[in-house]
Design a protein around this nucleic acid. Structure first.
Lengths: 219, 219
DNA sequence: CCCGGTTTGTTCCCGCGTTCACAAACTCTT
DNA sequence: AAGAGTTTGTGAACGCGGGAACAAACCGGG
């Protein structure tokens, strides 16, 4: 009942904390301090405590956090305690990988359909689901109450797919196609840009190389 | 000769600008304003201009930017004018997709080897390359001067793979395994976390849903 | 009951990034 | 040649996020 806004940076870290907590649970750890959890999540302990404080006071001073209880609270905050039906559009190499990816079919998320524009692939079995025609998108979204769509098509098709997703009622899109999507207000798009990540690494690598070269000159 | 530090946020956007410029070039656009380019890249025009100003003064007031010239300057700044050999470790569904992904074999980057710990897959042909044994990592890195490694293994194997990559001399890692990697100082790791992205979308979707529900009560 | 040890939740401060707004600089027309 | 119209590059203000440091709260022993 307290819809206090959680900072975007904190939201982005909650899934990391959740995974760290799952690891701790598998090791039968019942309680943990902010220091331990921060270590497992790869962040500063002060940052962790501040992040968690945005959700409420779920720790005990002098003791730490109850692993299972905290995990439940974070899950609930993210919304993983409810069911999220997902459709994946574009069953090429990447779409195929996503369909099989455990993180996509894990607790909370459920892939309800795989769609592809190439009707010659309709019926093909991938990750236990039959590929269906892209034309069925609206019907599937309506039937299952799909709110999240994943785009794994070539760049050229992505905007058109996004438009039809929005038209069908989808309001959150995870985009793997290397192109900027334009969507109406109220629709969220998160872009996962594989080649950008590589380029960013290359930039830093180049700087490191030239830095050591400079050192060499100096030394 | 001017190793002026470029803000991290700017570096992350340069690949996006680069792609927008490529699109413009394909449409035979010779010149563009900051407004146009910003539109194509999905950012504010002031932000774009400030970003570009960190690279130098490559525009002309009253005119705009020469598309090809700007593209070259950004490419050079990122380091795409040189050759970056890359190894991919873990040829499961995702590794398979990455090997075939054009962004990984595009100008600047070159996949020189696909490695997998499962030796029964050695020799299998993927994206025109034969899968090789993970044990060959050090030799391959040395032979080709590989500086960038991609991890697409299960989470359990990722840290060990990272350790051996670092040991072999790799200093930049792109990690797709859902686990936090610990590496020595001087080594860069970028994490691409597919399930986190979904969870972040779910959080916002949940908030949107409850917000409209509130509206409904009010209205 | 009281006191020392421990750990959370929070306050304060600093630096980065974003945005507005404008001066500087270029083109084109008259 | 001069002025009107454009567009870049940048100075300044603002807000968000990160980190250190500390007060508040809890546990256990005597």
């Amino acid at each position: 009942m307290s819809p206090t806004r959680i900072p975007e940076a904190t939201v982005a870290r909650l899934p990391v904390y959740l995974r760290a907590l799952n690891s701790l649970l598998e090791a039968d750890t019942r309680t943990c301090s902010s220091e331990e959890l921060a270590g497992a999540a790869g962040v500063n302990s002060a940052k962790l405590r501040k992040d968690l404080s945005h959700l409420g006071s779920y720790g005990t001073r002098g003791v730490g956090y109850d692993v299972e209880y905290l995990r439940y609270q974070i899950s609930r905050e993210i919304g993983l305690t409810q069911d999220w039906p997902v459709v994946i559009v574009g069953i090429g190499n990447l779409g195929h990988a996503l369909a099989n990816y455990s993180g996509f079919s894990s607790r909370g998320f459920r892939t309800v359909a795989l769609l592809d524009a190439d009707d010659s692939r309709t019926g093909e079995l991938v990750a236990g689901l039959k590929i269906r025609s892209f034309g069925e998108l609206a019907a599937i979204v309506h039937e299952h109450g799909v709110a999240i769509g994943v785009i794994a098509t070539p760049a050229a098709a992505a905007q058109s797919v996004a438009d039809q997703m929005v038209g069908a009622g989808i309001r959150s899109i995870l985009n793997f196609a290397p192109t900027v999507l334009t969507v109406p207000e109220g629709v969220d798009v998160r872009m996962v840009d594989l080649s950008s990540e590589l380029q960013i690494l290359a930039y830093h690598e180049q700087r490191k190389a030239s830095a050591t070269a400079d050192d060499g000159v100096v030394a």
